[in-house]
């Protein structure tokens, strides 16, 4: 058992499942949006606003935003532990990796809060 404190859940299985479930949510959201914009090509602001004021749409958008954050965190964390290692950066690898992970975490959190603000403000 390899211990780690910076991954999403401490469990490889949980992270792996989160990444797959969030991928399905994101794919569904993307396909829904694509379909909606395809069938309502002459969309107005009112229609767009009405869509996003529906409770089910708010839940769906919020789910997609959380999914994006979790999915991106698992992916970026994996990248950081693959490439920002002692083998590549020597003794400073831990600091570099931690700064990179912190930046990713802050960025994803910002995107989530900002996304909620934009979508729910419509």
């Amino acid at each position: 058992m390899v211990t780690n404190v910076t991954n999403l859940s401490r469990s490889g299985l949980y992270d792996w499942m989160v990444q797959r479930v969030t991928a399905i949510v994101l794919a569904s959201y993307f396909l829904f949006m694509l379909g909606y914009l395809f069938f309502c090509s002459d969309i107005t602001y009112t229609q767009w606003s009405e869509l996003h004021s529906q409770t089910w749409m708010r839940i769906f958008s919020l789910l997609a935003l959380f999914s994006l954050g979790a999915h991106a965190w698992v992916g970026m964390w994996t990248i950081s532990t693959d490439y920002l290692t002692e083998m590549a950066f020597g003794k400073s690898a831990m600091v570099i990796r931690f700064i990179f992970q912190a930046l990713c975490g802050v960025t994803m959190f910002t995107y989530m809060v900002w996304g909620i603000q934009i979508l729910w403000g419509l």
């Binding site: 780690n4 469990s11 490889g12 299985l13 994996t78």
Partner: peptide, 12 residues
Amino acid sequence: LSDLDDPFSVFR
């Protein structure tokens, strides 16, 4: 199984 359930051993 519990020895393998970390983010590296199998899931890498």
